[in-house]
């Protein structure tokens, strides 16, 4: 059975957080979707709260402390990324943005990304479309068409005539993302030192 690498990045700040909860639910939905296609998945969850100080230090010094270095490497080497943030002041949180600011601009090129967000009210749900999707589009990631927003009320809600319940939306996103991951080959990031990297000689 082929094993894919999935990394979930959660920017939730409280412990436990509903952002982490959404990340976990999405992860399980993707796992189920991949299992349906005969694929296994190795999941790694990155809690940005635990990396808050290393992230700030990287911004100041220009290099990642070991724990952050390892997290960035995990994201870079994955077959797919689930990125979930709480909504802060009408956008992703600063910590969430800072983490992705520190990843090589080319590291997510062609990589499947499933975005999710949580908030106190459903009125912020388009943050997925006006903030997260452009961020990952800039990084040339392949953002899954279905993104999942969970407002506080969704955790106990039954949906309405126009909106499916949260579990339905999570399953839809997971199934879709599993297909995307399964059909997207991982882009090797390794640097090959046996060939020239600059066109020399210059006239």
């Amino acid at each position: 059975m082929k094993t894919l690498k999935l990394v979930a990045v959660s920017a939730g700040l409280s412990v436990p957080s509903s952002t982490r909860l959404l990340a976990d639910r999405l992860t399980e939905a993707v796992r189920a979707g991949l299992a349906g296609q005969g694929m296994d998945v190795e999941v790694r969850v990155i809690e940005l709260r635990e990396l808050a100080v290393p992230i700030a230090n990287h911004l100041v010094t220009g290099f990642p402390p070991p724990t952050l270095d390892e997290a960035i490497e995990a994201v870079t080497q994955s077959d797919g990324v689930i990125a979930v943030t709480p909504v802060f002041t009408a956008s992703y949180s600063g910590l969430f943005k800072s983490f992705f600011d520190l990843i090589d601009p080319d590291a997510l090129t062609g990589k499947p990304v499933l975005v999710g967000a949580t908030g106190g009210t459903a009125r912020h749900s388009l943050v997925l479309e006006h903030a997260l999707r452009p961020l990952f589009a800039y990084l040339r990631a392949i953002v899954a068409p279905t993104a999942v927003y969970a407002a506080s009320e969704d955790w106990g809600g039954t949906g309405d005539a126009l909106t499916d319940t949260l579990p339905v939306r999570i399953d839809r996103a997971g199934e879709q993302f599993a297909r995307l991951m399964a059909s997207t080959p991982r882009r090797e990031q390794a640097y090959d030192s046996s060939s020239p990297v600059a066109a020399l000689p210059i006239a």
Partner: peptide, 15 residues
């Protein structure tokens, strides 16, 4: 260059 960031101890260990 590195002020107001990591501690002297961490920076010494990492660089």
């Amino acid at each position: 260059v590195y002020g107001h960031g990591p501690s002297l101890e961490d920076f010494s260990e990492q660089t």
